[in-house]
Design a protein around this nucleic acid. Structure first.
Lengths: 193, 193
DNA sequence: GTTGTGTGTCAACAACCGTTGGCATACGGT
DNA sequence: ACCGTATGCCAACGGTTGTTGACACACAAC
């Protein structure tokens, strides 16, 4: 994403751009959108705040670049239909732990309309598309995706943002065994069973 | 909460205090902690910003007063054990819709450490206490409460903060029928069933 | 060597923020 | 009527923020 689209000469400033992005993700994840100041991000990247403006235009532009994200959902059509829930929880858990971009997006979405829009896009598009691959009733697809998102985001919110002690301390494997049946029912079950 | 602890003469400024609190809750719920400025809150309440300082000391103090909240959980010991989930979802849904304080707390908890601490307190104390009333294994109580919190907060986050379309549009009764079994299992079930 | 372009620093701006102190006014007790 | 106190407004402060423009230096092309 830092590299130019057309094969021009690789820019000498690519390292700086990457350092800014890395610092921005850290700060946005730790402090949210408004508390993460351009000055602090620039200090972390050991450059001048004005460089951030030159390379990313504005704070909004910087966040848009830092919050670029792909859920990298596995192909659910290739998963045995009674393991969908477990596969999904495991995938999301690994994704949250391995990349702080999602936490940055989650924190920022609470106060920044652009971040909320981005979050809607990611979960409405990517997740809904994944749910649609093992198409049952198309009318229910969006609702299933929404319910899955509510449990996944709630898990992330309590574990990484609010840091509820029982959710922070719990063993990831036990978390999977609790939450997998929930997603399984949201994906393949019917209400009021 | 506005009335003084000791039975002194009721203050003439109680109406102003209440107006400030109401405006503060609205702004905190709509904009989060940092974007909700004292100036904007004062303008909504049609008074001078300095009044906010005099009556609540600081912005943190105002938020502490505005985020005072009681979940008012029903006595779960009086609920038939297979209806726990349904009763809880219904109660929380009504509580979210009827009082914007919880949304304010939810939005602010993403960026304000004090708000996150308050949220931890509410869900760790009040919810854990409610779960403990129909005591099964005490070692599991905190984990059950945490899991319930993750689904409840995820529901609120997707419906009221991020506003995921499928979660906004869904009929509340259908939402209950989907989520109740989840809470039911978190409260009374065992993992990996 | 000269020129031009990309990379980086520095200082400053205008706007906004939470917060403070002073001053006018209206009320309640006597 | 008088006085102390509570209530309200106004103006300003110091600090921080995003953003901007001018200037210094390095490197590549010729």
């Amino acid at each position: 994403m830092t590299a130019p689209a057309h094969p021009t000469h690789p820019r000498r400033s690519d390292a700086t751009r990457a350092a800014i992005l890395r610092a921005a993700r850290e700060r946005f994840a730790a402090d949210g959108y408004e508390r993460a100041t351009i000055r602090a991000i620039a200090a972390d990247a050991r450059i001048d705040p004005s460089m951030v403006m030159r390379y990313y235009g504005s704070k909004e532009g910087l966040f848009a670049a830092a919050a670029e994200f792909d859920l990298r959902l596995p192909d659910l059509a290739a998963v045995s239909s009674e393991q969908l829930g477990e596969v999904l929880v495991r995938h999301f858990l690994a994704r949250w732990e391995g990349d702080e971009t999602l936490v940055a997006l989650l924190r920022a979405a609470s106060t920044n309309p652009g971040a909320a829009e981005r979050m809607r896009g990611i979960f409405a598009d990517q997740l809904t598309a994944a749910v649609a691959t093992f198409g049952t009733d198309p009318a229910l697809t969006a609702r299933r995706a929404g319910l899955v998102a509510s449990q996944i985001l709630g898990l992330a919110f309590t574990r990484y943002v609010v840091r509820l002690p029982p959710m922070v301390d719990v063993d990831p494997e036990e978390l999977v065994s609790w939450v997998a049946p929930t997603l399984q029912r949201y994906l393949t079950g019917l209400p009021q069973t």
